[in-house]
Design a protein around this nucleic acid. Structure first.
Length: 519
DNA sequence: TTAGGGTTAG
């Protein structure tokens, strides 16, 4: 048996377990049948077992291996972290007879990913030598744990910065909301790759700069960088945010050509795009044709129907999840609760809220409380809503007070409105919303002196009301509308159509109420 | 054998 033969066997072995789920037994049979093995064969089978989550088998091979090199130990170390077994990884690292830069880096990365950033940094500082990978692992560890100042400090201390470290830092800036710094860094990268482009495009989308994301995508195209799976998802997300159906459809077409539509994450983004652009039907079509539906797919279709006010569909899909043995998660409940809220199903939503923790073991987050407060407030049950806020184990967030304030405006509660507005101003003093709403409450109650007082306060504190705006894409042209602006040449026609839509909405809402009560 | 981007809600 020549050395060359072992190399071929090893290549076959690795290819086999990398082939996907269900291929590990075949790889193990091949390993057992191999006429000769070297240390790389042993490393491969250990890595294969770990990649498939079979720790017992990996440990058995590891123990049986006649020779181990540092790579064997490192494979085992990285595998333990991937399985979330931090203590075992710790022990292994302590027992290692030899460590190299890879062992230390695996430790830094593994600890940081599990949230143990301080210990990761200790290991990083104790390293006899570091390479680009070690630096990038530590920086991205900080970013993942939202420690942006630390990430930046380390990035600046990095002796030579490569595209990977820059991309990690770009992501950090974007997560912090600092897209401008991200862009400066991005523009400074000499050799950008597709991942750095994706990071910048996605950063824009997540910060509400959909147009800039689209522009950058065009530049990327012009520079001849081939978009990949993640690029298409980013562009779809931007299309969703901007409600650009044509753009979204063209991405769909590209994906069909690139045979990407079978990808679950891509299809999920596609469903969102269709739904946000008003085509729930298309969204459901994608959902029904998707083979590998995951929890995100279900959440997406439920959210799509919730946003389109189809309460029955939402409940039907939620029940179907149960039938198929799928467990809803916290996000599923947000959509279902919001659908309940829009049709005023108070009792159903309170029951679901209880079920969430009692049956599914999901502890409600501030957003879930906000939903319940919103539902109760809209139904005019403001005292009950206040009780929920009082009993909350968490601190009430902005949207909770916002929901309450909105209801105070609708139902004319002055005192409670004052409290809610005050809480909102405390958390965000620059926003004009609470001032305007409180002023409306006072105006409705005929308290003109208070209205003037609020106006004075706004002036004093430099709070300005941002005009609301919307836009729509018709025949390849974007039409923009700004609140209070009546300068459109076809204003009369627009108002006429709006009245028709309003009337139609009223009828549909009434119908939905009746149907919901009958169901 | 170690590092960067990607789907759902608000």
């Amino acid at each position: 048996m020549s050395q060359r033969d072992v190399v071929s066997w090893n290549a076959l072995l690795t290819a086999l377990w990398r082939g996907g789920r269900g291929h590990l037994p075949a790889a193990r049979r091949l390993f057992d049948a191999m006429p000769a093995r070297n240390v790389i064969s042993w490393n491969s089978i250990v890595a294969g077992c770990l990649a498939h989550g079979d720790l017992a088998a990996a440990s058995a091979y590891f123990a049986r291996a006649p020779t181990r090199n540092v790579a064997t130990w490192n494979a085992m170390l990285a595998g333990l972290f991937r399985l979330g077994l931090v203590e075992d990884a710790d022990r292994l690292f302590a027992e290692m007879p030899v460590r190299n830069v890879v062992s230390y880096t695996a430790m830094v990365d593994g600890l940081a990913r599990r949230g143990e950033v301080a210990r990761a940094r200790e290991v990083f500082d104790s390293m006899p030598q570091r390479n680009l990978v070690s630096w990038a692992a530590m920086i991205s560890g900080y970013v993942e744990n939202a420690m942006f100042a630390e990430a930046r400090e380390l990035f600046e201390a990095m002796p030579e910065k490569n595209v990977v470290a820059c991309t990690a830092m770009i992501t950090g800036y974007c997560k912090e909301g600092n897209v401008d710094s991200a862009r400066i860094l991005f523009d400074g990268i000499r050799v950008k790759d597709v991942i750095s482009w994706n990071a910048m495009i996605t950063g824009y989308v997540h910060n509400g700069h959909g147009e800039e994301a689209m522009r950058l995508h065009v530049v990327m195209h012009k520079e001849g960088v081939k978009p990949d799976h993640a690029t298409l998802i980013a562009v779809l997300t931007a299309s969703s945010a901007l409600a650009l159906l044509r753009q979204g459809k063209s991405v769909h077409a590209i994906a069909i050509k690139a045979l990407l539509e079978s990808s679950t994450s891509f299809s999920n983004a596609l469903m969102t795009m269709y739904s946000r652009c008003g085509s729930v039907g298309e969204s459901e079509f994608v959902f029904l044709n998707l083979k590998g539906q995951d929890i995100v797919s279900w959440n997406t279709i439920i959210a799509a129907y919730a946003q389109h006010g189809k309460y029955q569909k939402v409940i039907a899909l939620f029940n179907e999840m149960e039938v198929r043995g799928l467990t809803p998660d916290d996000i599923t409940f947000l959509s279902v609760l919001s659908a309940c809220g829009h049709v005023g199903m108070v009792d159903v939503s309170l029951k679901l809220f209880d079920l969430m923790s009692s049956k599914y073991g999901i502890s409600p987050r501030a957003e879930h409380y906000a939903c319940i407060v919103d539902i109760l407030s809209r139904a005019g049950q403001l005292e009950k809503a206040c009780n929920y806020i009082k009993d909350m184990p968490l601190e009430a967030e902005k949207n909770i007070w916002g929901a309450l304030l909105g209801a105070c405006q609708t139902h004319g509660y002055v005192q409670l409105g004052e409290l809610a507005a005050e809480m909102l101003v405390q958390s965000d003093s620059a926003s004009s919303g609470p001032y305007v709403m409180l002023s409306n409450i006072y105006a409705a109650a005929g308290m003109w002196g208070q209205v003037n007082r609020i106006r004075g306060q706004m002036k004093e504190r430099g709070v300005k009301k941002q005009p609301g705006y919307s836009w729509t894409e018709i025949a390849n042209e974007v039409h923009m509308f700004v609140g209070g602006d009546a300068s459109h040449p076809e204003m009369r026609k627009i108002i006429y159509e709006l009245r028709k839509i309003n009337l139609h909405m009223q009828i549909v809402t009434d119908e939905t109420h009746i149907m919901a009560e009958l169901a």
